[in-house]
């Protein structure tokens, strides 16, 4: 059935592209008229941002190794955080209450598989549900049929985050005895085996306690820019790679991630977050 839907999606691909054409034309037209000064300013801003991110990433790598060492001391297995990213552009999206999805310009020929998580700069935005040779359809976390296991970052309380249909999500199965506050960050718990653990998903916006139910009604806003994102990252977990790599390589690869993909349309596999220290010795 999945192959049949993929065939139908392939058939519809030119229609989606034609529907997207007026917007693309407008974007190209407006980009052509962007002044040189504006581009220069943006370039400077991006360079500064890149430097800051690199500095933060180095800190993060150090902390990751420290956590690994501490976990090794405690004797726990730890979280193997070895994922590779693939950059994709959004070329069609729907935020209708009936279905909320985006279509990205990477498909089976680029190695995209059903179930792969999709993230943007701020957090998880969805997962691949159908793929064609050149495109893939991503179900957003706000779609009513989408659910993702999460935990509250502050307390570690686990729950299931479901889509509500119009740009909102709801956290289910949190007992009334739990301590949840507005502003709490919800991150993926990784219990489903599909979404990696520790990625931010949403922020709690409203907590309602009703006498008739044993659970709290918790509403949240997704962190990812579901309707604005033009570029997204397809996450691929590499379970076979568990050994600790040298620190020099760890530091080099993120540089590639930020500088190499000048043309995001080309298939550029970017290695990031290589290895937690599961086998590290203190």
């Amino acid at each position: 059935m999945s192959n049949f839907r993929s065939a139908l999606l392939t058939l519809l691909d030119p229609i989606e592209r034609l529907a997207q054409a007026p917007k693309q034309l407008y974007l190209n037209f407006s980009t052509d008229f962007t002044s040189f000064d504006e581009l220069k300013l943006e370039n400077d801003r991006l360079k500064t941002e890149m430097l800051l991110l690199k500095a933060k990433q180095q800190q993060l790598i150090m902390m990751e190794q420290e956590v690994g060492r501490l976990r090794a001391l405690l004797g726990t297995t730890g979280q193997v955080n070895n994922a590779s990213f693939q950059i994709a552009s959004v070329h069609f999206f729907s935020s209708s209450p009936l279905s909320q999805f985006i279509t990205i310009n990477k498909g089976r020929l680029d190695g995209v598989e059903i179930g792969q998580p999709i993230i943007d700069a701020k957090g998880i935005i969805g997962q691949v549900v159908h793929s064609t040779p050149s495109t893939a359809r991503v179900l957003l976390i706000t779609d009513p049929s989408h659910q993702i296991p999460v935990r509250i970052q502050r307390t570690g309380q686990r729950g299931i985050l479901s889509g509500r249909g119009f740009d909102g999500v709801q956290l289910n199965f949190i007992p009334k005895s739990s301590e949840v506050r507005v502003g709490d960050l919800l991150e993926s718990s990784g219990l489903d085996g599909k979404f990696p653990s520790g990625y931010p998903v949403a922020v709690v916006s409203q907590v309602v306690s009703q006498d008739s139910t044993p659970y709290l009604e918790i509403y949240a806003n997704p962190l990812g820019e579901l309707n604005q994102a033009q570029q997204v990252l397809i996450l691929k977990m590499n379970p076979d790679r568990s050994a600790l790599e040298p620190t020099s390589e760890t530091l080099e690869t993120p540089g590639t991630a930020t500088t190499a993909p000048e043309d995001t349309q080309t298939q550029q596999r970017v290695e990031a977050k290589p290895k937690a220290a599961t086998s590290a010795t203190p």
């Binding site: 229609i15 529907a19 997207q20 007026p22 917007k23 729907s94 935020s95 209708s96 309707n227």
Partner: peptide, 18 residues
């Protein structure tokens, strides 16, 4: 039919008009 599908796809783009 092709044109109608394109129009429906256009309506679905972004915040669709119910």
């Amino acid at each position: 039919f092709v044109l109608a599908l394109i129009v429906d796809a256009l309506n679905l783009l972004g915040e669709s008009y119910l």
